[in-house]
Each structure stands twice: as C-alpha cells, then as structure tokens.
Amino acid sequence: MGTLVLAEGFVPPGAGDFNLPPIFGAVTKPMLLVVMSVVIIAAFFVITSRNMKVVPGKTQFVAESIYSFTRNTIAREHIGSKDFQRFVPLIFTLFTFIFVNNIYGIIPLIQFPTMSHIGFPLALSILVVYPVYHYVGMRRHGIGGYLKNQLFPAGVPGPIYLLLTPIEFFSKFVMNPITLAIRVFAAMFAGHLIILVFTLAGEWLLVEASAALKPVAAVSFAFAIAMTFLEALIMTIQAYVFALLAASYIGMALAEDH
C-alpha cells in the first residue's frame, strides 16, 4: 500500500524544474549567476595577485595552482610549446568560468549549475571556441590550406575522399562545437536532476509517506549526499574536459598535419 501511495503521490522533478521564472523583468537566476561568476573570478585573482609572496599563502597557492594547471597541463600539452602562450588566457578563462558556474550546483541557497541551461555552453562553444580555432588555423595555413588540411587528410586514396570529406566537414564544422557544449550540459543537467530526485523523494518520504516508508527517507538523503560529492568531482572534470578539448581543437588547427 505504501508503494502504491509513493507511486501516486510523489511527483519526480523533470526538465521543467530547470525553467526558472524571471526574478525581475526578463532577468533569470541563471543570468545573474553567470554575471556573478565573472565578478567572483575577477575579484579572487585580483585580490590574490596583489601582494604575491615567494612563499605563497593558501589563497595565492590556489590561484597559482589553477593558473599553472591550465597553462602547463592543458594549454602547453595540447596546443604545443611553440604556440600555447598566447592562448593561455582563453583556456584559463574557459576553465575557471565553467568550473564556477558548475560548482554553483552544490552551493547551499544557490544550488543551480548554470551550465545545465544549454544556451550557456552553446554560446561558449559556438561564439568563442569555434571561431577562434578556425580563425587561427586559416591565419596560419591560409583558407585554402586550412580547408585542405581539415577536409582532405594526407595519405588517403583519392576515391575515399568522396566518402571521407563530407564526414570530415560534418564532424569538424558542424558537430565539434555542438558536442563540446552538449558534454558539459548533459553532465550538469543529469547530475542536478539526480540530486533533486533523491532530495525531494527523501523529503516526501519523511513528510508525506506512510509510517512504514518514513525510514527509507534516510536512505534517500544519504544517496543525495553521496551524489553531491560525486557531482562536485564531475563538475571539475567537465570544466577540465571543455578547456582541454578547446585547446586540442586549437592545437589541431595550428598543426601542419591532421
């Protein structure tokens, strides 16, 4: 009977719960969070870089570690030691911006990852990363040379190009920016939805369910806590993956052979 009541009484969260109403005018919570993330990132790195010391304090150490990670582990390794330096600000900005907007999802009172709205990662991918790596590739190789490198890989028999070239075009000029955005969006959307399911289910079990089912609320809350820790890891990984793929696309665009 309790199971029947659970099935009939509990309404699980869905995609509609991500459509937040405007706070004022046409401004929504995700819009404010995006602006706030820029302020947070700028303020943190301005403050930590003001009085830098040879032996860094905790905040300086964190700031230097983030910069070193994006510079050496992401940009240098995937763009190449010859060209990476001028792209460090872009990779650094992408990583920190996505990380902060992801981590909102586990911060009390905020609890909403802005990258779970597809428009934000799409804007970063299509309006920032996509034009940058095509532009730098065309600037280095010329438009014709760049398109040749992208669409006609070396060492392929001539007739195979009839099949391979359309696939290369679709992959590099259509799907790359879309899949780059979908990766972070899907992870943030799914993770936040799972946490919502366990949290709201636990609340319903504790407040509304029959006495026999109330102890199950503790299990649901435990899963919600466990998923929150897991989601924190995924949020960090997704920021890293986005920045890494952006660097990889730039590196491939600059390379002589693809």
Score class of each variant (00 low, 15 high):
Val129Cys: 05
Pro131Gly: 10
Pro131Gln: 09
His134Ile: 14
His134Arg: 12
Tyr135Ile: 15
Val136Gln: 09
Arg139Met: 15
Arg140Met: 11
His141Asp: 11
Gly142Trp: 15
Gly142Arg: 15
Gly144Glu: 07
Gly145Leu: 13
Tyr146Pro: 10
Leu147Trp: 13
Asn149Pro: 01
Asn149Gly: 11
Gln150Gly: 00
Gln150Met: 13
Leu151Thr: 08
Leu151Trp: 09
Phe152Asp: 00
Pro153Gly: 12
Pro153Ser: 13
Gly155Trp: 10
Gly155Ser: 10
Val156Arg: 11
Pro157Thr: 03
Gly158Asp: 06
Gly158Cys: 01
Pro159His: 09
Leu162Val: 04
Leu162Lys: 04
Leu164Phe: 06
Leu164Val: 11
Pro166Cys: 08
Ile167Gln: 05
Glu168Leu: 06
Phe169Cys: 10
Phe169Trp: 13
Ser171Lys: 14
Ser171Ile: 10
Ser171Gln: 12
Phe173Trp: 08
Val174Gln: 02
Pro177Asp: 03
Pro177Phe: 02
Ile178Leu: 14
Thr179Leu: 12
Leu180Tyr: 05
Ile182Gly: 07
Val184Met: 04
Val184Lys: 00
Ala186Gly: 07
Ala186Asp: 03
Ala187Glu: 04
Ala187Thr: 10
Phe189Val: 03
Phe189Asn: 00
Phe189Trp: 08
Ala190Ile: 14
Ala190His: 04
Gly191Trp: 02
Leu193Pro: 05
Ile194Met: 06
Leu196Glu: 05
